[in-house]
Nucleic acid binder design. Structure first.
Length: 283
DNA sequence: AAAGAGCTCAACCGCCCTAAG
DNA sequence: TCTTAGGGCGGTTGAGCTCTT
């Protein structure tokens, strides 16, 4: 950004004719809102002139679309929205405006900021390229299920205090109790003690794996499959281990679990049934 | 309480596409 | 066909806020 980007509001008459930059004032916001209320959007340069705003048309457009427009949502992204962003980004990459179309009230700028400040940071922390298959798998196999679970927990709510949901951390945290993922969910790292059999993704009947949990919160899924947890599985097969079915993904035989702050274990589901102990040995 | 580090997000930049003349 | 202006979009910046020490 140029050095004078944030410098404005000079009192000289010469500067009064210059375009303003930097934060918008309440007065400018009011002018813009009132003009659009009377004349509508579009023709932004003309709008800027006629509204008496010493701003570029682009600046007016951005201010309106990202901040002043009545249907712009404020506040943190919900787990549902985060989940959708992760999924749509896996499909379309950095097509922020396209992704934003699927999140009513959210702007491309907001989504872009979320991705850069939260998701990219996780990748950096794990020393993984966000474009890598590995990172995509981690998102699909690990973070998305956690978001789903958080959604489920929130819905069952408050009522149940069996899970401790904290404010979203700035980065994955590994503690004695377990890990806190990007969605803020605290989970247990000691999967050994779960000590039960694990069903393979390929073994899940697709019609069954379309769980109510999954379809309820993620009807526009592009996974082509399901994310299944023992307690959410409609057939209730009582598998204590989580199973992540990547559906149409070629990586459906792979899952990741955290081993340490910087390492992730890749679990290869290349044979049909695993005992958890075997699975851990294989890791 | 103060200082420094880290984080968030509003705003700008620059490139590209499209339509009008 | 060429030029130009408007608009859209992804990338980047930095002020101000929050957190940590």
């Amino acid at each position: 950004m140029s050095s004078n980007t944030k410098s404005f509001s000079s009192s000289s008459s010469e500067d009064d004719n210059e375009l303003r930059r930097g934060p918008w004032t309440l007065e400018e916001d009011t002018l813009l809102i009132q003009y659009i209320a009377r004349h509508g959007e579009g023709r932004w340069n003309l709008l800027a002139n006629r509204a008496g705003l010493r701003r570029t048309g682009k600046s007016c457009r951005l201010r309106w679309l990202n901040y002043l427009k009545p249907d712009v949502k404020r506040g943190n992204l919900t787990p549902e929205e985060q989940l959708l962003i992760l999924d749509l980004h896996s499909k379309w990459g950095n097509r922020w405006s396209k992704i934003a179309q699927y999140l009513p009230g959210r702007t491309d700028n907001e989504i872009k900021n979320y991705w850069r400040t939260r998701v990219q940071k996780q990748a950096k922390h794990l020393k993984i390229d966000t474009d890598s298959t590995e990172f995509q798998n981690i998102i699909r196999c690990f973070w998305m299920p956690r978001l789903l679970q958080k959604i489920g927990d929130q819905n069952q709510l408050a009522a149940s205090h069996q899970h401790s949901i904290t404010a979203p951390p700035s980065q994955p945290q590994f503690t004695e109790q377990g890990a806190v993922d990007m969605s803020g969910f605290v989970y247990d790292l000691d999967i050994k003690k779960q000590n039960t059999e694990c069903i393979l993704p390929s073994e899940l009947p697709m019609e069954s794996s379309n769980t109510s949990q999954f379809s309820e919160y993620y009807p526009s899924s592009s996974f082509g499959g399901a994310i299944v947890r023992n307690d959410h599985f409609v057939n209730n097969n009582s598998h204590d281990m989580e199973v992540f079915n990547l559906g149409n993904s070629a990586a459906a035989d792979t899952c990741y679990v955290p081993e340490s702050e910087s390492n992730w274990l890749e679990i290869d589901f290349s044979c049909s049934m695993w005992n958890m102990d075997e699975l851990l040995q294989r890791c």
